[in-house]
């Protein structure tokens, strides 16, 4: 790409395409331990180590007081409750192959987040008591990643509050899974 500066000089720059997940942030209740921006930054830091970009497509506040404490049932991938279906219907600005993230107050039963979503509506929820790494962890599930044991990894199953040696790691095989997801087009 060539760009002409105000002094008439011409500049050129080459960009390479980067697999990128685009998030649309829907805030019902703001998190209390970290800000949404801190969570996004934390996620960007971790994903960047494996060459995955994180873009924020839009951000909006949703006034849905009876959905901010959300019934997530067993939080099983592919199986959602009536309330999840209702909440995930709020998809302003969310394009095909983009991810809607809903920041809610709590889940029923209590968890820090849940990545179960209905077919064709990639989504996850992050609760107000989440850690700095919960956002990246839940989106990791949406992109196809599973829990692992090592405590220094983003997808560790023992709780992201207990991550050791932060920022947490993603490994090559996880990168391949994320790269193969239709939710990380190269842009």
């Amino acid at each position: 790409m060539f760009v002409r500066g105000t002094d008439g000089s011409a500049w050129s720059k080459a960009w390479s395409l980067v697999p990128t997940v685009t998030l649309h942030l829907k805030i019902l209740t703001a998190p209390t331990s970290f800000t949404v921006d801190q969570m996004v930054e934390g996620m960007r830091t971790v994903y960047a180590t494996r060459g995955i970009g994180v873009a924020v497509g839009s951000r909006e506040n949703l006034d849905l007081p009876l959905l901010t404490d959300l019934d997530v049932g067993s939080c099983t991938m592919g199986s959602v409750t009536t309330e999840q279906t209702q909440l995930f219907g709020n998809r302003n600005n969310v394009g095909t192959n983009q991810v809607a993230v809903y920041f809610i107050r709590s889940t029923n039963p209590p968890s820090n987040g849940c990545a179960a979503f209905p077919a064709g509506r990639p989504s996850c929820v992050v609760t107000s008591a989440a850690s700095q790494w919960t956002l990246g962890h839940e989106v990791g599930h949406v992109l196809g990643l599973n829990h692992v044991d090592p405590t220094d990894r983003l997808m560790m199953g023992g709780g992201t509050w207990n991550i050791t040696n932060p920022p947490p790691d993603l490994i090559d095989s996880e990168r391949a899974t994320m790269d193969n997801s239709p939710l990380t087009p190269s842009i």
Binding site: G113, E138, T160
Partner: peptide
């Protein structure tokens, strides 16, 4: 704590 600390708890 080991049972309850996970982000998604298996109750």
């Amino acid at each position: 704590r080991r049972a309850l600390d996970p982000d998604e708890v298996d109750y």
